[in-house]
Every structure is written in C-alpha cells, then in structure tokens.
Design a protein around this nucleic acid. Structure first.
Lengths: 252, 252
DNA sequence: TAGCTATGTGTCTTTTGAACACTATCAAAT
DNA sequence: ATTTGATAGTGTTCAAAAGACACATAGCTA
C-alpha cells in the first residue's frame, strides 16, 4: 500500500499508536518478532516489545501498521489484520523500565496513548528484521519462550494468538507463513503449532485436500534423509472461489 | 462498573472516542439505538448516528463505553464487547452535515479522531433512551430500515452485526436481548433475525435444549390466541460450567 | 363449534468427525 | 550391500451431528 501524505508537514499524533504482532514459522515452531529497547538495567524479557509507533495524523490505521512493518522488515503486501484497541490509562507507565524507554523514544513520554494492535503473518526466510527508528535491534523469539514483555504487550500477544487460532479454522491464512512450495506435513505441523494441539495426520490431510485449495506440484523434496514428500502450492483461484461461496470451518 | 476519576480534573482526549452499537430485539425484529444530530438541513438518515463520545484521559476504553451507555440508557451491567478501532483520517469530516454537527458538539471539531467501536445487547423494554450531552434525541430503528448514517457509522454497524453473528454461534449471548422469561420460539426467531436466515424449528429446539442451558419454568404464556408456549429462563450456572469446558459451536 | 394461529414433537438419511496401523522411500551409517 | 532411522503416505470403521420433513394440539375469537 502506498502511503502518500496529504499535508507537507506530517505530525505524529501523541495519543494513538499501532503495534504489530508479527508471526513467523520455521517449519517447526511459531515465532514472534520482538524489538529490544536496549535498556540494559532490566531483565531481558521485560525489555522486549512488539514493534509499533505513534501514527501520523495523515494516515489511517492500516497504513500506519504497514508503515511499521515496512520500516522493520522491508516487506510490503503482508497479511495484516486488526486485533483491537488497548487503552488502559496506565498501560505504558506501569513499570519503571517502560517509562525510561518511553523517555528515550517519545517527544511526550507522559502522554496517554491508546494503541491499535495488529497481527501479521510473514514468510520468515524472506526477510531480515532491521534496526529502525523505534528499535535498537529486532529478532525472532519462539512463542514458547516469551514470558514477559514491556507495557501491555504480553496481553496483546495473547489476543493475537487467540485471533489467529480462531481465524485459521475459518480461512486458510496459514499459507502466508509457509514458503511457496510446501509439504502437507509442514502445513500439518503449522496447524498443530498454532492450535497448540495434536491433529490426526490422516484426518488432517483428508480435510485439507477436500477443500481443493492446494495444487500438487508433481515435484518432490530432494536430499531429505527419508521418503521425500510431495510438494504443493496454494491455489489462489480455487481459494478465492471458495471464499466467495463462503466456507465456515476447517473443522478442527 | 463504577467509574471513579483518579484526577480531579477530567479532560477529554480530543483524539479518541468510543461509539456503541446498541442492539435490541422486540421479539420480531432487531433494532439499533440511534441518536439524532438535530441538524435539520439534511435527510433524516444522514443525521442519525451511533451514540458515542470522546474519552476522558483517566478512564479506560471499556469504562468510556459504559459511561456512554449509562448516560444514554441509565443501565449498567450491560453486555458489551469491543469491535475494533476505526481511524480513517477523514472519517468524520467527509460530509458537510457531519462537520456542522461536530462544530456544535466538539471543542475541537477539526481534530483527527479515531474511534473504538463497541456493540452491546440490551433488553429493549427495560429502558428508555434519554437525551444526553451528546444526543438531542435517541430512539430505536429497525436494522432493516437503516440505510445511511453519519460519519463512518454505517460501516461500524456492519462490523457490529458481523461480529454478533459470529459470536452468537459460539456463545449464547442472545439471552441479553430477551426478557427473563422467554419461549423457544422467541429465541428461535432471534437467531433467525441475527443470522439473517431461516432455521429449521425442530433442529433448532433440539440443539438448544441439548446444551442444557435453559431451565423450564413450568409456566405457560397466558392470553395468547393460540396454543400457549412453555416459558424458559437462562440457566446461568450450567452456562458458566459449559463456558469453562469451552464449547465451540452451536452449529448453525 | 368452526376456524385461525402458533406450539410441540420423532424419525430417517446424509454428512462429518474421530480413532486407528502398516508399508514405502530416501539418506546415512556400518 | 545391508541395515537403520526418519518421515511420507494411505482406508476403513464407528459414532455423532446436521438436515430434511408433516401432523396433531391448545388456546382464542368470531
């Protein structure tokens, strides 16, 4: 999405921010992209946060989220969905370490800020998180290793995961996390990771194939030390058709 | 919920508002509570809006929504759920009539305002909408009659309905729209209205009863010109039990 | 007492979900 | 050359849920 300012002077709105929970998948685990405040006085976890920024008065919320994503990852056209707004009056000022961080990055660190949270899905290998105006460093953390985050970001992450779980049962958005060519086992593993439970292999394969949204590439894995798996790609045409008709449930 | 300000001076935040889509049901149709700007120069529909207000810097978003609901309806403890944030830079300034209205109610009518939308469910007969600081008049409009609203409120209403549809399949929140004592036919009609489609009577009754969340009051309608219906009430205890176990789907 | 209106009830068929175990194919190690 | 380890791939059966469908009942009214 192209963001074009309508005013020459773009002003940050001191009261509204966006935060983006960026999910990745390395074919065995789910990850989230976190930035580091660089504040060395505190434990590592509490210095980590979900990337975000104040919005400009000229851009809409989705645009702001895409701007943050682009600055951080260089990627455009990413799957993006709003989670909702988080607005406790003291959501960003509870911890001493949070306040210090704010003082270092915000013109008005005491302002009351409500944030609009998003989650997005990216193909992990496609990109390298960069340092940016709002992040000294950025990197992937396995979801299972996240215990504590700055501000109310842990709560935001939980909401993101919840929404992702709900959504993936209704729409095959998981393809955004996989490489172009993938195996059914990888897709299977992805669903298990997101839903946090085991799924029967045969039942999974049957259901997915019955949706007719996969194209068999008639190509196999090479160099793997076991029976090579058939490769598939996502069939966009059939998926779009199916979306229009409306389908309710993957049924997991 | 009791809202208690932590500061003596409560200040409205000029950049963030809440808007509440309030649904009601009169046993035959779904309604939404709309307020009237009182601006007489334009068509009726475009003067109507969903009630809302700027937030105070001391309250959180849910509190702000409850405050709006209380001011308008006098009711507390209402079912309330966030829909999400709406924040196009020009969402409130597109139409001339919108701008006039804003000038009459806002200290900074030109400010860029993002809004956090909520929907809530109320028992229609329980209450009378009142005029308030932000509404010259307020009243129920059948969903089917709403064509156009001020600002981006039509879009907000559509999102509210969508979310309600999704939610009512997963949780029996519909009880918030019905009187304490209700018949299965009324509940059936409510589901049909919300989902916008016919549901088989016998299948509906079977599914609902199998959930064990209804208590048969062993009491019948009186004075109706047809076979009187059994009355039920919502069994909160069983519902809470069921919620904890987690149930996925009414299956409509 | 006839007519109108909405209530209330059961069965059968089809679809969907869930449980379950063995053979096949490759690479690497011996 | 053979064995080993790792993952891929494949069907059937049983149980549960969804969907389709028609008629007798109870109260009011005219």
């Amino acid at each position: 999405m192209n963001f074009k300012s309508k005013n020459t002077k773009k002003e940050l709105n001191p009261n509204v921010s966006v935060d983006c929970v960026i999910f990745g998948f390395d074919l065995s685990q789910l990850y989230v992209l976190l930035i580091d405040s660089g504040n060395t006085e505190d434990y590592k976890q509490s210095r980590m946060a979900v990337p975000g920024d104040l919005i400009y008065d000229t851009e809409n919320l989705d645009e702001a989220a895409r701007r943050v994503l682009k600055e951080l990852t260089g990627i455009e056209n990413i799957y993006l969905e709003q989670i909702g707004a988080f607005g406790d009056p003291d959501r960003i000022g509870k911890k001493e370490s949070d306040r210090k961080w704010l003082e270092s990055i915000r013109a008005q660190p005491e302002a009351r800020v409500i944030t609009v949270a998003y989650y997005s899905l990216v193909k992990m290998p496609n990109f390298n998180p960069k340092a940016s105006s709002f992040a000294k460093s950025a990197g992937w953390t396995a979801i299972s290793e996240v215990n504590e985050l700055a501000f109310d970001h842990y709560e935001i992450l939980e909401s993101a995961l919840e929404q992702l779980k709900r959504k993936i049962k209704i729409q095959p958005i998981g393809f955004n996390l996989l490489p172009e060519k993938f195996t059914l086992s990888q897709l299977h593993k992805l669903y298990e990771c997101i839903l946090g439970k085991d799924l029967d292999k045969r039942n999974f394969r049957r259901k997915i194939l019955n949706l007719n949204i996969l194209t068999d590439l008639e190509e196999k894995q090479i160099g793997v030390p076991h029976k090579p798996s058939q490769l598939f790609k996502f069939n966009e045409e059939n998926y779009n058709k199916l979306s229009l008709e409306g389908f309710d449930n993957f049924g997991f």
